[in-house]
Design a binder for these strands. Structure first.
Lengths: 212, 212
DNA sequence: TCTGATATAATTGTCCTGCAATTGACAATG
DNA sequence: CATTGTCAATTGCAGGACAATTATATCAGA
């Protein structure tokens, strides 16, 4: 019964970063929006220094951009950026799938199949928002099963930028043809076929053709 | 003749981060070393706030670790970490090699071959430090040729942590059997054979077996 | 009207001082 | 020995001040 998990001990600095990050990936703050340190400080009821550190944090995550002495703004992504995000995401997820397949265990396989079933179930209902979330959850589970903390955080970075773009473009990003590709991916991982898992993972992401 | 590139107009915050990063990857600050904000501030002749931001920066790069209210220290890496760095580096570099091969041009091929020749030349002289640098330069050139800015920065992160470890362990990291594998890699890229380039890049990095 | 110089404002960059919160080490206590 | 209290060190955070730089508005002149 570890209660410490519930007590918020995170610094205000990172909590502020969390809040702003949420606002960005959810689309409340759209790309190009200017962010003023003093204004944010008042809004969040924090000091300017605290906000500053949070902004720098988000800066290294690629979510906000600063031009010296001029200000901060929510990062705007162009086609090249989007291509970079897609390709990077595919590579990272391919690696994750390979690792997950290599070290798959009973429990992991069960969780994976369950996540897939959940996704299928939601697909029949047709709630796009829910499907999207289940899709993301499935992918995130694969990352987790790879037991690679750095891979996880790198993926997280890419995903945040990706989501920020999606949210802003209001492009309901097509949960990628949820049927076959996911099935093959899940199957390959559970069967421990690392090569096929990697291939399927990459195929799964690269429904990108139509965007080029 | 753009001189502005040479003029240091970067903020003190990031310059401080640069200095500390150098000290860490060069091994002047070994893992486990404690870093005290006020002490650093005096050393660098900067204010504590400036140092703080630089430390947070390095923190997100994984070079330093903080425990709340207790202090900062240079990150210590264990075997799992090292494995993560190797595998991640291999994947990223494989991707870079593939992209480089896909978009190779005359000029790029020339630069690549030249870097390789330089590496070979240094190998005959036997200066390990110089060889190591040339080896890194070659790899970095491949990253550059992939024209993928995010891939570049992700790779940079991994490499910094990697170098910090190497420097601290004082393990003269064996420029990876400079002969054949590099030759095959360079060849494959210049020939535009993306599949083979990726394979060779990964093979090249994973001289890791002996470390497991 | 357009252009260009110039003043003005807005914003970040950097420093400072101060104090609260937390940790870690060590002594005191039972 | 385990627990508790004390104290120093350090970070967490606030707020103020001013310099440096950039953005914006203004205005004179062609």
């Amino acid at each position: 019964m570890n209660k410490s998990a519930k007590i918020s001990k995170r610094s205000l600095e990172s909590q502020a970063a969390d809040l702003m990050r949420e606002d960005i990936v959810n689309g409340n703050l759209t790309p190009g929006t200017r962010l003023v340190e003093t204004t944010l400080a008042k809004e969040y009821g924090l000091s300017r220094g605290t906000i500053r550190i949070a902004l720098h944090q988000l800066g290294t995550e690629g979510l906000v951009t600063q031009v010296p002495y001029a200000g901060w703004s929510v990062t705007e992504l162009n086609d090249q950026d989007l291509w970079e995000l897609y390709t990077l995401r595919a590579t990272l997820e391919g690696m994750a799938a390979r690792l997950a397949a290599e070290r798959i265990c009973e429990e992991g396989a069960d969780r994976l199949r369950e996540a897939y079933q959940q996704l299928l179930a939601l697909c029949k209902l047709g709630d796009l928002k829910a499907i999207t979330r289940a899709d993301l959850d499935l992918h995130k589970l694969i990352i987790e099963l790879s037991s690679h903390s750095r891979l996880a955080s790198q993926y997280q970075l890419v995903e945040n930028q990706f989501l920020a773009y999606i949210a802003a473009a209001n492009r309901d990003f097509e949960p990628e043809s949820v049927g076959l590709s996911h099935a093959a991916l899940v199957e390959a991982i559970c069967a421990g076929e690392s090569d096929r898992a990697e291939t399927e993972a990459i195929r799964n992401i690269t429904g990108f053709e139509e965007l080029r």
